[in-house]
Amino acid sequence: MSSAATSADVMDGIYRYQRHIYDLTRRHYLLGRNNLIATLQPPSGGSILEVGCGTARNLILTARRYPEAQLYGLDISAEMLKSAEANIRANNLEHRIRVAKADATRFEAEELFGKALFDRVFCSYSLSMIPNWQSALQQACQAVAAGGELHVVDFGQQNDLPAWFGKALKAWLARFHVTPRDQLGEAMAQLATRNGGSLSFRSIYRDYARIGTIRLL
Score class of each variant (00 low, 15 high):
M1I: 13
M1N: 09
M1G: 14
S2P: 13
A4L: 06
T6F: 12
T6P: 09
D9M: 14
V10M: 13
G13F: 06
G13A: 09
I14Y: 13
R16H: 15
I21V: 15
Y22E: 11
R26E: 12
R27V: 14
R27E: 08
H28P: 01
H28I: 10
Y29W: 06
L30Y: 12
L30A: 08
N34M: 09
T39A: 10
Q41L: 09
G45R: 14
G45L: 15
S47L: 07
L49V: 10
L49M: 04
E50S: 07
V51W: 03
V51C: 04
G52L: 04
G54L: 08
T55E: 03
N58V: 03
L59V: 08
L61R: 00
L61T: 07
R64G: 13
R65V: 00
Y66I: 02
Y66W: 07
A69H: 01
L71V: 05
Y72R: 15
L74S: 04
L74R: 12
L74E: 00
A78P: 09
M80T: 02
L81I: 14
K82Q: 10
A84K: 02
E85G: 09
E85M: 15
A86S: 14
A86G: 07
N87P: 05
I88A: 10
I88G: 07
A90W: 14
A90P: 08
H95Y: 06
H95I: 08
I97T: 02
R98V: 07
V99Y: 00
A100V: 03
A102I: 10
D103F: 07
D103H: 11
R106L: 10
F107S: 01
E110Y: 08
E111M: 12
E111A: 15
E111Q: 15
E111P: 05
L112N: 01
L112P: 08
L112D: 07
G114E: 13
K115R: 15
K115P: 07
A116Q: 15
R120Y: 09
V121G: 03
F122E: 01
F122V: 01
F122C: 05
F122S: 02
S124W: 04
S126E: 07
S126A: 07
S128V: 02
I130R: 04
I130H: 05
P131Q: 12
W133A: 02
S135F: 07
L137V: 14
L137F: 08
L137T: 11
Q138T: 10
Q142P: 07
A145H: 01
A145C: 09
A146S: 13
E149D: 11
V152S: 02
V153D: 00
F155A: 08
G156T: 00
Q157E: 13
Q157L: 12
L161G: 03
W164I: 14
F165Y: 13
F165W: 13
G166Q: 03
A168T: 15
R175M: 08
F176G: 09
F176S: 11
H177D: 14
H177K: 12
R181F: 08
R181C: 05
R181A: 04
R181I: 05
D182N: 13
Q183W: 06
L184P: 04
G185F: 00
E186L: 04
A187L: 05
Q190P: 08
A192H: 04
A192N: 03
G197Y: 00
L199V: 08
S200N: 15
S200H: 12
F201A: 03
F201H: 12
S203Q: 15
R206L: 06
R206K: 14
Y208S: 09
Y208P: 03
Y208D: 00
A209I: 13
G212I: 02
I214H: 00
I214D: 00
R215W: 04
L216Y: 00
